[in-house]
């Protein structure tokens, strides 16, 4: 563990908490893409199956459970509890165009052709594009509530911090994982436009 990864995980946890609070407090999921949340639930489910097969640390296991519970909890709030506030009309990104290429790519480019490894690789590829429906929705509505933009800033920062973690691990531990690094860079690049807007003028209330 290093400070970059710890800050990254905290940023990730913060993003998920901000989202849950936003939906719970405002009792509305307006401006939030349910499709992206579904993709995140698929990402964590496919990646954290090793929760039952390999124990790394209490921290690792607890965080995996928190991320799984929070992502399914968000889906419950969006599609069941506060279903009336879900903005179907603006959440229209075709997620099959994200899932299928990630399935194919994970079968073609992976470290090992085993079920757990393919699922992990699929989750890495899918996570890199999972935010697209949300960014697409923000661009369609032309604005985002301030709390939603803070959520996106924290979520985008988490993988950017992981890139620093990978640089650190390359030099300090002679460790690197090309698949995670390339997907992580793609994921962070997708936020660049949003980061620019967030930092220059806070995209809310545009």
């Amino acid at each position: 563990m290093n400070v970059f990864r710890l800050l990254g995980d905290i940023s990730h946890l913060l993003a998920i908490i901000i989202l849950l609070l936003k939906i719970w407090k405002t009792r509305s999921c307006a401006g939030i893409s349910g499709r992206s949340q579904v993709l995140f639930a698929v990402v964590y489910t496919a990646r954290y199956l090793d929760l039952f097969t390999s124990y790394i640390s209490a921290y690792n296991s607890i965080m995996k459970l928190v991320f799984l519970a929070a992502s399914y909890g968000t889906i419950y709030l969006m599609f069941i509890k506060f279903k009336a506030s879900y903005d179907h009309n603006h959440d229209t990104f075709r997620i099959e165009f994200l899932i299928l290429p990630c399935v194919l790519l994970s079968l073609l480019i992976n470290h090992e052709f085993s079920p757990l490894e393919i699922l992990w690789t699929f989750s890495i590829y899918l996570e890199s594009v999972a935010i697209l429906p949300q960014l697409f929705m923000v661009s369609k509505t032309g604005e985002a509530e301030s709390i939603t933009s803070h959520y996106l800033f924290a979520l985008g920062s988490y993988r950017a911090l992981y890139i620093l973690n990978w640089i650190y691990r390359y030099y300090a531990e002679s460790h690197y994982d090309v698949i995670a690094i390339v997907a992580g860079i793609v994921q962070t690049v997708l936020y660049c436009d949003f980061f620019y807007l967030y930092i220059t003028k806070g995209i809310y209330g545009q």
Binding site: R5, D50, N60, Y162, Y176, D177
Partner: peptide, 10 residues
């Protein structure tokens, strides 16, 4: 030899 797997990460 550089190790490959990043499975200890979230």
């Amino acid at each position: 030899k550089r190790t490959k797997s990043a499975k200890d990460e979230l």
